[in-house]
Design a binder for these strands. Structure first.
Lengths: 175, 175
DNA sequence: GTGAACATGTAAATTGTTACATGATTAC
DNA sequence: GTAATCATGTAACAATTTACATGTTCAC
């Protein structure tokens, strides 16, 4: 799902600004998509040019908040983009890359890496648990439960094996 | 981990060609990194220019296999890149994006989406289980067990809730 | 009064995907 | 013979990140 579609997706829940979209993505979408401000603003401009979103109210001053509303065209585009998704998932994990080549690292670095990942996973778990599920669609709740299942499995794995791995690797280390 | 580093990583296990690197990544790295041929060849050329890899043997004919070897400089670069990784992981999931906006889809499409993801996860599980763990470092085995833990959790979740969700959503559907 | 968060936007640079172009070898 | 796999490389295009540039508002 590209940034333009993500913008339409956020706006389908209510009017907001470019900055607001970033916050919404960080808070409510980050378990499956991400978008930075440098990508959101051009995407929003493009979407406006295509008539998928329209400015609501008038923002005359240069650095003033500019709210957007999803148009009917935008709603159709979002539905089409949703219908076009496939059942794919790709993980980009510097963490696992580091562990894969852990034999090139100091033991302290490996330790720090595991702790960092655990902290990140716990933060993610808190975020997911803090989401207002009551106001959500069945589908949204589904994605949160799915993400909680995998996050939970990762945490459990690292809590069990994360400590042990450092010890195990010390025996394999080439001095 | 960018494509150039991935190339160095693959070559750290033995000499191979650009095409061989893609296969190695698909077979042995795809649970945390990915690289397409269109990215590998330029990355390899750049790595050669930097003295991180060198051609082994001579390939005179234009479309002949060109083997590469990791140099000492390349080994250092790989170690540095590994030391620089953080404990981050990002999931890009068209699957969850589709489920998030499932209220915009036909029930059949949602069903197909879940089935697609389940098939993909089972394929991934088979790949991970088929890897030659005996010849691996502790770190490599760790990444496989980690990936199997999350993959297993996803499969279990979809097997339990994947069917039910379609039914549950029918009650919420706006006709 | 100072730092964090709010707020918009541009641009350079990087990065990567996909398609194009070409051809050999291998298994059925 | 024909499809798949092996094999290299380029180029157009798309997408994104990071940094730059600017300024406000709010809480402590």
């Amino acid at each position: 799902m590209d940034v333009r579609t993500v913008c339409l997706g956020v706006l389908s829940f209510g009017d907001t600004s470019g900055y607001g979209i970033r916050k919404a993505v960080q808070d409510g979408f980050s378990h499956f998509a991400q978008a930075s401000l440098g990508a959101i603003y051009p995407a929003l401009a493009k979407a406006q040019a295509r008539g998928e979103v329209e400015p609501v109210g008038a923002a005359d001053a240069p650095l003033e908040k500019r709210m957007f509303r999803l148009t009917e065209i935008g709603r159709v585009t979002l539905a089409e983009a949703t219908a076009a998704v496939d059942g794919t998932e790709t993980l980009r994990s510097p963490f696992l890359a580091g562990m894969f080549f852990a034999h090139l690292l100091e033991m302290d670095d490996v330790h720090r890496l595991v702790d960092d990942r655990l902290a990140g996973l716990r933060r993610e778990q808190r975020r997911l648990r803090g989401l207002p599920t009551a106001e959500m669609t069945e589908g949204q709740r589904f994605t949160i439960r799915y993400a909680l299942a995998t996050t939970g499995a990762s945490i459990a794995f690292l809590e069990q094996e994360g400590r042990a791995i450092v010890t195990a690797m010390q025996h394999q280390r080439i001095p």
